[in-house]
Design a protein around this nucleic acid. Structure first.
Length: 669
DNA sequence: GATCCTCGAGTTCT
DNA sequence: CTCGAGGATC
């Protein structure tokens, strides 16, 4: 074969392989068998090996090849990658439609609807028709570069169709996901190799795409679908529908199941029919996306800080699964609260196996009328915490007796007292469940911050009688620690060092750590500010506590009774005796008053700092951080995967900031 | 007395 | 994150 013949054959083979990749992955309609495809692919590889000068990076054989790297590079997005407001109720969709009609001053809006793929979104950049760069969403402004990993996805064309006259520059938004069957076989392979299986397809896709070694990514069956043109040289398509058509024309995969709707009723119908076919789809979707079709209208409507006004995600009702209650047990918290807990026959809900769910309190158990042996519906509320939503009656079933709260603590046998909706164990001084809880709380980050003193260690210390109260922590010896399971020289030394370090503590942290009822981080700080030292605080009367702003009769009664208790006074005395040195509370060192009077609420994950660091930043500038959104909230900072607080903010018209905007505010350049 | 705003406490799985 | 309830405010 001459060089020229080889060149022609290679070009022909590449076209054919791309064509079949496209049919297989984007259209899901292969025309040739896998064996035939393999034959074409092998011939191409052989020719390219024989004529290395003809090998180019856009050849379908060149999807893998880059060596592993140390960490993913950060790249700024060409356009910020916004997220979508999400809603779950019909009425909210109607409200969206009404709002659009009002703002656009028209009665006829065409919406384009498509399934919302449950994967991770990526930005793809094509220059002169060639795939040059791709990145994950990151915080919306800056993502992680995953170009080499994306190249391994066969549904993703490395070269846009030549005959489609691709634009000189094109930035596309897409979603990378994994098909369910591929996900299952991947998990099977991983389990066989003794590796940890992925919890759900989305995690599998995210983990696979963010691999440092693209050869691993290549072995993971990822796929992609594209749904937005973020930037294009030349004229932009006049509508979202045309955008999708253009993408498909360039051979990019787009959602096959899409529709143009002439009314909001059609949108509702599409949502319903898509939900119905959800179980039979080979991949996971979590709702539909509704977009105002016309581009000029989109531009007119514009965007809020983190989401466009002209589109919403209309999610499906949270996934519910049916399972049986195997038992109802009662756990004892650090304050002695008895909490009923349903042990469930393990069931998969939204990709995670659920085996227990809290029933909160006795009233709740009664209201839902759930008993041991009952069949119930389980959902993951807020997509995280499992909750039993209702009982599913089984015809002819023989039900057990209703659940009753025990009248003695299941851990220590002390009497149980009732207060409002809650039941408490009265064995404050003898109950090991309470003691364990109290110690864990004392050691926790926002209290004494003793590193290395986790749940397991606490349980052992208490069970072996080494620790009977908080002060006992400060006379533990290395010899004692070495007798614990899992403790050797190193961990013992580290734990002793953390305990030593905790001896210098501020008054507010100590107050928080003591676990006085109704006294959390906030009240502890208020008290520390007002009284300054522990002796002064302990000398105060109930009447004096009430004087303090934010402290009413309940909290002051709780404080007074805590300090009246002999046992508590002794523990405090011993803590001081064993070297605890209590400093006045850290003054709010506000370096500026730029944010004085402003209230912040955080929702979702931040990438640049922890919640605590973010809180400190706000306070440094004289602002305050609160946990719930109200009319008085100045800003809601929405990170990744924001929760219901974002919806609340929008409802109340509170300004929403992205993490980037927040940073600009607290760290002016 | 009603209403709004916050805080505290408990919770699941990986 | 959600619930229940304490405290402030009108």
């Amino acid at each position: 074969m001459t060089h020229n013949q080889a060149k022609e054959r290679i070009a022909a083979l590449r076209l054919e392989v791309r064509h079949h990749d496209h049919l297989y992955y984007s259209k899901d309609r292969p025309e040739i068998s896998d064996a035939e495809y393999d034959r074409l692919f092998r011939e191409l590889v052989e020719l390219e090996t024989a004529y290395p000068d003809l090998l180019t990076s856009d050849s379908p054989t060149q999807r893998v090849g880059a060596p592993p790297i140390d960490e993913l590079a950060k790249v700024p997005h060409e356009k910020p990658m916004l997220s979508l407001d999400s809603i779950t109720d019909r009425e909210d969709v109607q409200a969206f439609d009404t709002r659009m009609k009002r703002e656009l001053e028209t009665d006829h809006i065409v919406y384009t609807v498509e399934p919302k793929f449950d994967g991770l979104s990526v930005e793809l950049v094509y220059d002169q028709g060639k795939f040059v760069r791709g990145s994950t969403r990151g915080d919306g402004r800056t993502g992680e570069e995953v170009t080499v990993n994306l190249r391994t996805i066969r549904a993703l064309p490395l070269q846009l169709r030549h005959d489609s006259s691709p634009p000189a520059h094109l930035v596309v938004r897409g979603e990378v996901y994994m098909r369910l069957d591929e996900f299952q076989s991947l998990n099977r392979r991983m389990t066989e190799r003794g590796e940890e299986a992925f919890a759900n397809p989305r995690n599998a896709a995210a983990g696979s795409l963010r691999m440092l070694d693209s050869r691993v990514t290549a072995s993971r069956p990822l796929t992609v679908t594209c749904y937005d043109i973020m930037a294009v040289s030349g004229p932009a398509p006049p509508s979202h529908w045309d955008e999708l058509e253009a993408l498909a024309g360039w051979s990019l995969p787009v959602p096959a199941h899409r529709r143009r709707c002439r009314s909001i009723e059609e949108v509702l119908a599409f949502h319903q029919s898509t939900d119905a076919m959800r179980e039979s789809l080979p991949f996971e979707i979590d709702g539909i996306v509704v977009k105002v079709d016309r581009r000029d209208w989109q531009d007119q409507l514009g965007s809020k800080s983190r989401s466009p006004r002209w589109a919403i995600a209309y999610k499906f009702a949270p996934r519910k699964e049916i399972t049986d209650i195997q038992d109802i047990v009662v756990s004892v918290g650090r304050t002695g609260t008895l909490t009923p807990l349903a042990l469930l026959k393990p069931v998969e809900v939204g990709g995670v196996t659920i085996s227990r769910a809290t029933l909160h309190n006795a009233d709740e158990v009664a209201r839902k009328d759930v008993r041991v042996g009952d069949r119930v519906k389980v959902e993951r509320a807020g997509d995280v915490i499992p909750a039993i939503t209702e009982r599913v009656p089984v015809p002819g079933e023989q039900r057990q007796d209703p659940f009753v709260m025990p009248d003695h603590c299941p851990v220590c046998g002390s009497a149980v007292a009732r207060e409002g909706a809650y039941f408490y164990c009265t064995g404050q001084t003898v109950c090991v469940a309470q003691l364990k809880g109290a110690i864990e709380h004392f050691a926790s980050k926002s209290a004494l911050n003793i590193d290395g003193l986790g749940k397991k260690t606490v349980a052992q210390l208490v069970d072996r009688g080494l620790v009977r109260d908080l002060a006992d922590l400060y006379r533990l010896t290395k010899e004692q620690l070495l007798t614990l399971e899992g403790f050797a020289e190193r961990s013992a030394t580290l734990l002793l060092a953390s305990i030593e370090r905790s001896k210098s503590v501020t008054l507010d942290r100590l107050l928080m750590g003591l676990g006085i009822r109704q006294v959390g981080q906030h009240i502890a700080r208020v008290l520390a500010q007002r009284f300054g030292t522990l002796p002064q605080l302990m000398a105060a009367t109930e009447a004096e506590f009430i004087q303090v702003h934010e402290i009413g009769p309940e909290i002051s009664a709780s404080l007074a009774s805590f300090f009246r208790e002999d046992r508590n006074r002794q523990v405090i005395a011993r803590l001081v005796e064993r070297g605890l040195s209590i400093a006045p509370p850290a003054q709010a060192t506000s370096s500026s008053h730029a944010l004085a009077g402003k209230t912040f609420v955080f929702t979702g994950g931040l990438s640049g700092y922890s919640r605590d660091e973010a809180k400190q930043l706000v306070e440094q500038h004289g602002g305050t951080v609160s946990s719930s959104v109200s009319k008085k909230t100045s800003y809601v900072v929405a990170g990744t995967d924001p929760g219901s607080k974002l919806d609340q903010a929008q409802k109340l018209g509170v300004t929403v900031l992205s993490e980037g905007e927040f940073t600009d505010l607290v760290k002016p350049a």
